[in-house]
């Protein structure tokens, strides 16, 4: 009997994959490569690193896939592996990040001058085309501190629930909400000062601080 793999659950595909079914692995890869790659790409800001991380995730799945309990979200399971891989590689390369606990915490007051005054009736993005607007948002996300960026990526770009995002990060749900709120405030500030010509310049990642 031929199984319709495209309608098979992730847990069942994983079971078949661990039993050596190549088609099951191919289906899992096809289903999850893009979310994993996008998450790694936007979290790290590096195409090369995102490729390495995507490879890491699926090699880990081959080796340790039996550790997935099947009860939790498969997306959260894969993105947890991806997140660890990104952080490990960034730490090793020390290109963008140092894993120090001197980052902005949820108790730190937000900087002055946040765009309460920048939000006019139409908003700062009103005069931009759609592609300019998304480019502005992309650059603003890339400029966020890492612990805010990952929450934005998980909750908005990956559409995880707060519970799943908390599982990936290993924190409380309240922390996810608090960081998401703060990330949006910082984004709004960044967008308020965005000019379309900035899109032509290469994205320069500022050294991110990561609060563990």
């Amino acid at each position: 009997m031929k199984i319709q793999l495209d309608q098979t659950s992730d847990a069942e595909l994983l079971r078949l994959m661990l039993a050596g079914k190549r088609a099951a692995f191919a289906q899992l890869y096809q289903r999850w490569q893009a979310p994993v790659y996008r998450f790694a790409l936007r979290l790290s800001g590096s195409v090369e690193l995102a490729e390495d991380v995507t490879q890491d995730v699926f090699l880990t799945l081959m080796r340790d896939g039996a550790q997935y309990s099947g009860s939790g979200s498969f997306a959260a399971y894969l993105l947890t592996i991806a997140r660890h891989s990104v952080l490990r590689r960034l730490q090793r390369e020390r290109r963008f990040v140092t894993l120090e606990t001197n980052g902005e915490s949820e108790d730190t007051p937000l900087p002055d001058g946040l765009p309460d005054d920048a939000v006019d009736e139409a908003g700062p993005l009103a005069n931009l085309t759609r592609s300019e607007m998304t480019e502005a948002v992309r650059q603003a996300v890339q400029g966020l501190p890492l612990h805010y960026r990952e929450v934005v990526l998980l909750c908005h770009m990956q559409e995880l629930s707060y519970t799943e995002a908390a599982e990936v990060i290993g924190c409380e749900i309240g922390t996810v909400c608090s960081r998401l709120y703060r990330a949006r405030v910082l984004l709004a500030k960044s967008l308020a000062g965005w000019k379309p010509e900035a899109a032509a310049a290469p994205i320069k990642l500022k050294p991110a601080r990561y609060a563990i």
């Binding site: 490569q33 893009a34 994993v36 790659y37 996008r38 790409l41 936007r42 995102a50 490729e51 995507t54 946040l114 765009p115 309460d116 939000v119 908003g123 700062p124 993005l125 759609r130 607007m133 998304t134 502005a136 948002v137 992309r138 603003a140 996300v141 934005v152 908005h156 770009m157 559409e159 709120y181 990330a183 949006r184 405030v185 984004l187 709004a188 967008l191």
Partner: peptide, 24 residues
């Protein structure tokens, strides 16, 4: 303050929709 949040959320959702096509 509330409008800020909504504006940022809408921008992020638009970006998410645009990036759906990015593949490994």
């Amino acid at each position: 303050r509330l409008a800020q949040q909504q504006m940022a959320a809408e921008g992020l959702d638009a970006l998410a929709a645009q990036e759906q096509s990015i593949q490994a």
